[in-house]
Amino acid sequence: MKTLALFVVVITGAMLIYAGQDLPAFGDINSPSYQAPMTQYFIENSLEESGVTNIVTALLANYRGYDTLGETAVIFTAGMAVILLLRRRET
């Protein structure tokens, strides 16, 4: 069982390393994700559009505000789920 798990893990790791050869080098400024128009747009325009200097906050609360609302709902739901699962000893 342990040998089979180790085998699966090594094969998967080798495949991931092989797939990673095509990814951009570490810290490469010409990487596609950095040169994408969207990224450059966020860096240039987030101050005028949302008024905050922290670009991550501008992304989180303004451009992706709906997603962050869902995220807050997720953490609220997790809290409620744990209460439902464990808080039965009082009743």
């Binding site: 992304l59 997790a78 809290g79 699962l85």
Partner: peptide, 20 residues
């Protein structure tokens, strides 16, 4: 900044799944 924002979301989901 985009991956930072995505990962902030992912960390919160990770905390929630771990708690449950």
């Amino acid at each position: 900044p985009v991956p930072h924002c995505l990962i902030l979301t992912a960390i919160v989901v990770a905390v929630s799944t771990t708690a449950v």
